[in-house]
Design a protein around this nucleic acid. Structure first.
Length: 563
RNA sequence: AGCCUCAUAGUGUAAUGGUAACACCCCGGAUUUUGAUUCCGUUAUUCUAGGUUCGAGCCCUAGUGAGGCUACCA
């Protein structure tokens, strides 16, 4: 018997290709790469690519598979070291490790240059002295072929000399570029003599002022992959038309390996701003506090929102890899967040909008502590003891002066259970000048702790509470996602921040700050209201911890406006 | 307009050419010391038209729809 009994895991089309390449012996191992340009922070869309590339490497650990982290820093105008560091942090936080395989495309500049010289020597590249506008015009359009420029027929020697002068800094920016000589009539515009090198007298974050010519993505990327012996170069759909060019460079340059480019659909999330350009605009325009603003779909923003990396990884696994360009409903992501937190987060109680309840007959059967389980389904997480006294805070919404038909909680002369404690009956209440209920009076029903409601007592619900004497006061900020205006829920108003995707004007960015009374001073899950979890684990411990965290709201709470 | 790619419940994904399925969402029910959780259930799917085949979601042709390509961005 072989071990082929094990049910075959469902493989996406990329994993199938890889499995096939491994079984046919085309490759002895697998090397993938995640190649971000350090021109912004990573967002949830990048997480899909990270999980794919690093995930594949992990799955083939038996053959020594690896995934490289490579910074594709070929355009010094947009790139910054801050972004490099944030990207490393985010990839690590997601749970992946590139080991020693950290690379920079800029470290290969000399090789790219040699390849360019090689192409010129083969008569396959030439220096172009037309302006960008002239080139665009001469390139033709989708239906008409391009026309050759004067430089296209220059001799190899002249091109070599011209390119050397480009490199030496003898030309100003825009004066000339190096182009590949491929096919000006190709129906694929990418093959109409693409630019290989442009002149930029710009300081590079890694190479300083060593170079004034910088390679274009199309030229550099296949060479980077080949140099690192990448076996499968996975990228998004918009590069499909670039593959022939990718292959052309692999074919015509002196490269040490032959990587294969495979495209998959990028992640689109409903109601979510995913464009780096727009995110940059939001940050620079001061609409949000920073790249890691919890309202943003950046990895660091989600982290501050309290999204666990496990949930993001599980989400990426669940949505799969295809070439179908669809839009995933954020509900799928949010389910994974709730699902993971529901299973892993210990419960704690907190009152967001407190109103005091005085238990007038507390002395009849005082309780020192209430015993409460830490998790509704998992007894292994144990119980905790919460001190309680004759005065507790409860949620304002858990009391109704005139209860509606399906309201099972507190109201005049009605009963409700304090979780882990007594059943209480409301005996009266006071109102402030503004009409708000300011104090609730109640009595405990002796003998109701830890047992079912006695005969004749109507008690259909339990509510959370905190002890007035020992509760910790905490500042809670509730962040909402920054939605686009197409969001149907946003249209109803309420708790959602709204962003107009066209004008990029934030119509209402709501950060709800509330003073909450909590029964703990560390990260936890709120019972019933949602999840309350740690932000980067950097909160201040002490008598008055400041929770600058997010509450990942239950769907029902968001959509139905509370229970 | 030319070329490339894609098309399976509302959403995302499965299905050696052989009974179309899973998850989410929605809705309903049961349980519940939080209207949460947990459990159970309902509804609903192969873009269209031809063709090949005993048999097509899958192969072929055409059409339709969606996305991409005419940066000295990646």
């Amino acid at each position: 018997m072989s071990d082929s009994n094990t049910p075959p895991a469902k493989l996406d089309f990329i994993r199938e290709i890889i499995a096939s390449d491994l079984s046919t012996g085309k490759h002895a191992t697998v090397i993938t790469r995640f190649p971000p340009e350090p021109n912004g922070y990573l967002h949830i869309g990048h997480a899909k690519s990270i999980c794919l590339n690093f995930g594949i490497a992990e799955e083939h650990g038996d053959v020594g598979a690896k995934c490289h982290l490579r910074f594709d820093d070929t355009n010094p105008e947009k790139e910054e070291v801050e972004y490099v560091e944030s990207i490393k942090t985010d990839v690590r936080w997601l749970g992946f490790d590139w080991g020693d395989d950290l690379y920079f495309a800029s470290d290969y500049f000399a090789f790219f240059h040699d390849c360019a010289v090689h192409l010129i020597g083969q008569g396959k590249a030439y220096v172009e002295q037309q302006s960008a506008e002239e080139m665009r015009a001469a390139r033709g359009n989708l239906t008409t072929p391009g026309v050759p420029s004067p430089g296209r027929s220059r001799s190899v020697e002249e091109n070599l000399a011209l390119f050397a002068r480009m490199k030496a800094g003898e030309f100003k920016e825009g004066e000339c570029v190096l182009r590949a000589k491929i096919d000006l009539a190709s129906p694929n515009m990418n093959l109409r003599d693409p630019v290989l090198y442009r002149i930029m007298h710009v300081h590079h974050h890694n190479t300083g002022d060593a170079w004034c010519i910088y390679p274009m993505y199309d030229f550099a990327h296949p060479l980077e992959d080949a140099l690192e012996h990448i076996t499968h170069s996975l990228c998004t759909l918009e590069f499909e038309n670039h593959r022939p060019l990718y292959d052309w460079f692999i074919e015509n340059c002196p490269v040490p390996s032959r990587p294969r480019q495979i495209e998959f659909a990028r992640l689109n999330l409903s109601y979510t701003i995913m464009s780096k350009r727009k995110l940059l605009e939001l940050v620079q325009g001061g609409h949000v506090s920073a790249w890691n603003d919890p309202r943003l779909p950046t990895i660091s923003g989600l982290r501050r929102r309290g999204y666990p990396p496990e949930a993001i990884r599980h989400f990426c696994k669940r949505i799969g890899i295809t070439k179908f360009n669809g839009t995933t409903d954020v509900a799928l992501l949010e389910f994974d967040v709730r699902d993971f937190l529901n299973q892993s987060a210990p419960r704690r109680m907190a009152v967001m909008d407190p109103v005091k309840v005085v238990l007038e007959n507390w002395a009849v059967e005082p309780l020192a502590v209430a015993q409460v389980p830490n998790h509704p389904q998992n007894p292994e997480m144990g119980e905790r003891e919460i001190s309680i006294s004759g005065e507790v805070w409860i949620e304002r919404e858990d009391f109704m002066e005139v209860p509606e038909k399906k309201f099972h909680r507190l109201g005049p002369d009605r009963c409700v259970r304090l979780k882990g404690g007594h059943i209480i009956r409301c005996t009266g209440f006071e109102k402030a000048a503004d009409g708000e209920v300011s104090l609730i009076r109640a009595e405990i029903l002796p003998g109701t702790v830890g047992v079912d409601a006695p005969e004749g007592v109507a008690c259909k619900a339990a509510i959370h509470w905190v002890d007035c004497a020992t509760a910790v006061e905490a500042e809670v900020r509730i962040y909402d996602r920054l939605f686009t205006v197409e969001d149907p829920d946003a249209a109803e108003g309420g708790f959602l921040s709204v962003l107009n995707p066209d004008s990029l004007k934030v119509i209402s960015a709501k950060v709800e700050a509330a003073l909450a009374m909590v029964d703990t001073s560390y990260s936890c899950q709120f019972e019933r209201t949602g999840y309350f979890i740690s932000d980067e684990k950097d909160h201040v411990a002490g008598a008055k911890p400041v929770f600058n965290r997010t509450v990942a709201l239950k769907d029902s709470w968001v959509k139905k406006g509370g229970r």
